[in-house]
Amino acid sequence: MTNPFEDETAQYLALVNDEGQHSLWPATIPVPPGWRTALGPATRQECLDHIAEVWTDMRPASLAMQMDGAAGR
């Protein structure tokens, strides 16, 4: 059986959660609670490109807000 996250011929979703974290997700698997679709269904590469373009800060949003707020004091 092929890993559903590595099938180049499958359709995927780019997911995002409330913390601004992104994930590649097979379109055939239900979106897990706490996540929403940001792109797709699309090709694996299109989703990976989208994630690389929009997810430039790997910190969870709550941590980024806390750190950036502390730096501004």
Rank of each mutant, 00 (worst) to 15 (best):
M1I: 13
N3Y: 12
N3R: 13
P4K: 06
F5A: 09
E6V: 14
D7R: 14
T9N: 15
T9D: 15
A10G: 11
A14N: 01
V16N: 08
D18Q: 10
E19W: 08
E19M: 07
G20R: 03
Q21F: 07
H22R: 14
H22A: 04
H22C: 08
L24F: 06
L24Q: 05
P26G: 03
P26T: 08
T28R: 07
P30W: 11
P30N: 06
P30M: 05
G34H: 13
G34I: 13
G34V: 09
T37A: 10
T37R: 10
A38C: 03
G40E: 00
P41T: 00
R44H: 10
Q45N: 05
Q45L: 06
Q45E: 09
E46K: 02
E46C: 01
C47D: 00
C47M: 01
L48V: 14
L48I: 11
D49M: 05
H50Q: 04
I51N: 06
A52Q: 10
E53D: 09
W55T: 06
T56E: 04
D57V: 12
R59E: 05
P60D: 11
P60F: 10
A61S: 14
A61G: 06
L63R: 14
L63Y: 13
Q66M: 14
Q66A: 14
D68T: 07
D68W: 08
G69K: 02
G69F: 04
A71I: 12
G72W: 10
